[in-house]
Amino acid sequence: MKTELQPCFMPRYLIVKLLWLIIITAPDWSEAQPIYGASSLAMGQTGVANPASGWSVSVNPALMSTEERLLSFYAFRYAGFSELTDSALSLTLPALRGAGGIELFSYGFELFRESRFSAAYKVEFRSVHLGLSATYVHIRQGGGYGSAGAVGLSGGVAFEPAENLIVGMRATNLNQPVFNRSDEELPRDISIGFSYLSGPVLTTLDLVKDIRFPLSVRAGIDLELAESFHIRAGSATNPSVWSAGIGYITGRVRTAVAVQQHYALGLSPGFDIAIGL
């Protein structure tokens, strides 16, 4: 018996299949190279030594703010596909001898959903910052293929060897977790970078090595063009991308938008907002 398809169903079905294929075959940008925050996105995905981020719970827990209470929201759409959207919510608070934070993250759509819940704590000794985070990662595949979860422990350090210079390091999933009921390991990487503030210019450079992928060199720049108004740009290798964005800070609210150009996938937009509580 011949099945008649709705006129609009075929292309939509193909797109979903294509997205499914991308997710399965290209986990490098879905897992190994997470992006948090439009500022980081605009600055070439740097941030391991950037103290001004509301996304330190994941980027580098050692750099959570010990002075501000920050509630942040972030969204990023890979190559314009609504199905490939990151969204995250973060809260960081000053705490005993340091700071604490939690973060919720979601990625994917009904056929594949990855969710993360992170909790982090940092301590500070003069110019030295040490942070630890625990992240529960849950993946669910649609169509009755089941779900799995794992807990990863990550650590970060940061220090200020000179005025306006911050050096930061982060190592993810130190406990080498695997998803239960499978041998699939969570991605592990080491990031090392610095940020240097010279007048209105913030410069960042990160080296990121994921076990499974080549070394990625990332650089970014943030210029406070006018009071409260920032323009940002950056570039990264492996994969080769460049990016740009703007940011505006008014009172307790910071907003940023960014766009990233991937050499093959094209443009991807991102947006975030952080509110000082």
Partner: peptide, 16 residues
């Protein structure tokens, strides 16, 4: 390689 000793009780060493 970079070695940083912010305090006598703490030492970081980074190498690529």
């Amino acid at each position: 390689q970079a070695e940083f000793r912010p305090q006598p009780t703490l030492r970081f060493r980074t190498r690529i």
